[in-house]
Nucleic acid binder design. Structure first.
Lengths: 169, 169
DNA sequence: TCCACATGGTTGGATGTCCAAGTATAGTCC
DNA sequence: GGACTATACTTGGACATCCAACCATGTGGA
């Protein structure tokens, strides 16, 4: 899987789709498959940068989300909503971050259903160091051209909005 | 997680990045995070369409790849290369498809290291029906605008090429 | 002919995803 | 005040990802 293929496998699949008579669906299929592959490439790269910190991207995202709150804490349901992952994914991430001493769970003062997840000092420090590494090694030179970055942001925001991710206003 | 958020969480994260002084990295970070979320949305949608066929996207892709070959078979290493997944992911997919009677494993006539994975009649039929469903329910109306589909294809092809996925020629 | 290197595929393991179901708690309405 | 609905989070499970290590086989060069 390290060796470049002689041809773009997704362009090939697109041609196959056209050959089978699915012309209207060929380009959308290719775009979606390209998104899947691009995500995979980026994930491998990001996980590679985070590995020395004993972090995965999922756990990193939760730490960073907490680091951006005023008090370094959030209800788990809120974290699930903002990170746009299933509540069980947050449970999983909090379990592992808590075992590593990077967050704590705390009861909500007024609502016994709610668990607050709170950043520890170690967690805040690691979030900062991991962000420095990602900024330096991924976000400074992503492999996208600058114009493409802006275009992607626009296109994917329109898509996410029509998918119901956030309100139009 | 079903309710739209009042604001775009990724745009919010981008503003947070700028506030922290990481201006050059903010847009690339947002583009990458948007790719992650878009992939997740598309995957949920695709898995939803495939579920009645007792297929996952990963298994579907292998079936479709085989359906496009002349003889309905490929060496597993070739499948790994074309699908751009780790060999263990192909082993996993073949195990499950084989258990479901959708593919068979066969020895290579000339190379005892190599295992061929071969589509069965049931597998070919299921690949066709699942493709019909995906064409109808996902690829005909993806949620992307038509211009955006073409732009995505171009942008992501450039990215995948610079990442070493395929040769420039 | 033998050895070193490469290839193909598997196994065990770690990880994170979401679904279904369950329990505890809170809110609303009659 | 009680019943019903909703919310928060967990647990168990299915699934697929990739990594590390291993074994069997093939290739090429000395």
């Amino acid at each position: 899987m390290d060796q470049p293929l002689p041809r773009d496998p997704i362009a090939e699949a697109q041609r196959n789709w056209v050959r089978r008579g699915w012309e209207a669906q060929a380009a959308p299929m290719a775009a979606i498959t390209a998104i899947m592959r691009t995500q995979q490439l980026l994930m491998l790269r990001i996980e590679g940068v985070l590995k020395p910190f004993a972090l995965t991207f999922s756990r990193y995202e939760l730490l960073t989300l907490l680091a951006f709150t005023r008090r370094g804490e959030l209800p788990m349901s809120r974290a699930s909503s903002l990170l746009q992952v299933h509540p069980t994914s947050v449970t999983n991430a909090v379990d592992r971050l808590q075992a590593a001493g990077l967050v704590d769970r705390a009861p909500h003062p007024l609502d016994r259903r709610t668990t607050l997840v709170r950043l520890t000092t170690d967690g805040r420090d690691l979030a900062r160091r991991a962000t420095d590494a990602l900024n330096r090694e991924v976000f400074t030179d992503t492999g996208f051209e600058a114009d493409d970055v802006d275009a992607l942001i626009g296109i994917l925001a329109r898509f996410r909005q029509q998918a119901g991710d956030f309100d139009p206003a």
